[in-house]
Nucleic acid binder design. Structure first.
Lengths: 201, 201
DNA sequence: TCCAGCACTAAACGACGTTCAATTAGACCG
DNA sequence: CGGTCTAATTGAACGTCGTTTAGTGCTGGA
């Protein structure tokens, strides 16, 4: 066959990314493949490669959406004037978002790009902006401390929570602990708050 | 061909696991395959399946060795009478071991077993015993606290460090923070000590 | 209306994990 | 020693994967 009038270049591109997102969300990243995706959109696998560099390219676009969605979830977190409470609210926003998009979140960290391939800079920036939000809470708890310290705490708490969550999503949290993920995350938040509040000036 | 006198059943089994360990250590879990392993030992891929259930079975045996090695590294950690210092020494033992066996450590957490497959119980026990060692340090810092709390702190610090290390090994730590893994791990330890020391009774 | 160029397909490549019929070397028995 | 049974090993096969490419025919512009 040859050219089809079914979709314009742009329509096809967004059809691909939309369908990829649905497939990953429903079946998980392991069941996702060039062939299953092309089958789902009614084209051949080869067609994907005329519109995208490779599968990584497609997954990366899906991942970007996932990160944007998390940013929105943070923005929608229950407000509070107490920075400690706010940290817990962010934690809940995080937990809620991930519960909703488990497979998509896993794709962000489980999908194996080719060895040398470097992470797109807007990934880093998207995460950095989330960490800035968290760091602001720490800053509010102890305004006398250097904001470098607050940023550091923000990174640490984000990394800690991410790790626990990803252990949980991949079914390996019970390798390390026997408690519920929600409990653990809030314990971690309390821990970081407690440590931060007692830091030497 | 048929039966060969090259190796006894036991010899072949340990040849397989030894070679698998070497291959994973050198090339990483991604480059590891039934075909590359069988090529390395001078047998056909089919032969592997007469001695092991599947590849998962082989990787699991390698992973068990990795865990045992980590336990030994903990046992060999620099002793100290100060429990806080000791926690840092364990952290260094952990970092040192992983620096040495990066690919093997990644295999433990990156290898994707089939969906339903459950983690072997001695995995969990091996990790639990490491956490007990860590929890003991916490207990020593504040003997007045319940030992449940100490265990909980042990789990949290283990999970946190594990996560940061695995983010680092998979090249994703810089998604979240810009600092050296060693620095980050010791910051985490300090944070957990600080929080633990200030816990309400 | 014609044609160049583009979008698309189908087939192919070399990998992967896994299975299995066929083969045959070694073990055992008489 | 000869025969037979057993179990270890092979090689080919199946269906999967990501990716490439030659060829085909539709479509937009002249």
């Amino acid at each position: 066959m040859a050219r089809r009038a079914d979709h314009s270049k742009e329509e096809l591109a967004s059809l691909v990314v939309n369908t990829a997102e649905e497939l990953i969300a429903e079946e998980g990243i392991d069941a996702f493949s060039a062939r299953s995706l092309s089958r789902a959109i009614g084209y051949t696998a080869g067609t994907l490669y005329h519109h995208f560099k490779d599968l990584d390219d497609i997954v990366t676009q899906v991942n970007t959406r996932t990160l944007v969605g998390l940013a929105r979830a943070f923005a929608d977190a229950t407000p509070s004037s107490d920075p400690r409470q706010m940290l817990h609210n962010y934690a809940d926003a995080f937990l809620g978002y991930i519960a909703l998009k488990r497979n998509l979140w896993n794709a962000l960290f489980e999908f194996r790009r080719k060895p040398d391939q470097l992470v797109p800079p807007w990934y880093i920036e998207a995460i950095a902006s989330l960490i800035r939000i968290i760091a602001q809470c720490f800053q509010d708890i102890r305004p006398d401390l250097d904001d470098k310290v607050a940023r550091q705490s923000g990174q640490l708490v984000f990394a800690s929570i991410h790790s626990v969550v990803s252990l949980d999503s991949s079914g390996r949290l019970n390798l390390i602990m026997d408690r519920d993920i929600g409990k653990v995350v809030h314990e971690l938040v309390d821990m970081h708050i407690l440590a931060y509040a007692h830091r030497a000036k």
